[in-house]
């Protein structure tokens, strides 16, 4: 039978100029699938990738990195299944901005959002300002995906999205709810409480 397509909104955050859209353009354009309808521009791109029994259709929302647009970000990341926060390994400032974004996501973002940290421009490691270890440690401290990419050389771009795909929990049985019938259980459903 046909695999179910699942739409996943993914939000791109990060300073202007770090290569947010370059990463996504690279991701979407490599292995270009002619069956996928092109979008009108690079700010919103889609790509469908298989993951287990599902097809993940990434709806990728790019944001403007300039400070003046910062306040609009919640519109973009709300409802996202994942956020890719991008910094430029040759610009320490962009890593500081990243930390701000991560903080904001933790405070105001969707509860179960998958956060991925991408250090872009890996190809320019000779002028690197952000040590890999520092970024990796930071990512670990917030349980985020970490990967260094090079949009220019197509390094780790696909891997970035694969990692995101893997962290998306598979859909539960879809037959739970329906119009025609529903289950009434005497037992309370298993507790959803998280333990501290």
């Amino acid at each position: 039978s046909k695999m179910a397509i699942r739409e996943l909104k993914v939000c791109l955050l990060g300073d202007t100029g770090v290569g947010k859209s370059s990463i996504v353009c690279r991701f979407v354009q490599d292995h270009f699938d002619h069956n996928i309808s092109p979008t009108i521009g690079a700010s919103f791109l889609t790509k469908t990738v298989p993951c287990g029994n599902e097809l993940h259709k990434f709806l990728i929302w790019d944001t403007a990195g300039q400070e003046r647009f910062h306040s609009l970000a919640p519109m973009y990341y709300r409802g996202s299944a994942a956020a890719v926060v991008v910094y430029d390994i040759t610009k320490l400032d962009s890593f500081q901005t990243l930390k701000k974004w991560v903080k904001e996501l933790k405070e105001h973002g969707p509860e179960d959002i998958v956060v991925a940290i991408a250090g872009n421009k890996n190809d320019l490691s000779d002028i690197r300002e952000v040590p890999t270890k520092e970024a990796k440690d930071f990512a670990e401290s917030i349980a985020a995906i970490f990967i260094e990419t090079s949009a220019r050389n197509a390094v780790n771009v696909e891997e970035l999205f694969q990692k995101i795909s893997q962290q998306i929990p598979p859909l539960e049985n879809p037959e739970v709810d329906s119009n025609e019938s529903f289950k009434l259980t005497r037992q309370p459903p298993p507790s959803n409480r998280r333990c501290c």
Binding site: L12, G17, S22, G41, A42, S43, D62, T63, A64, Q66
Partner: peptide
């Protein structure tokens, strides 16, 4: 050239 939101929104 492909323009992302950094350029489009302004």
């Amino acid at each position: 050239r492909m323009f992302g939101a950094d350029d489009f929104l302004p």
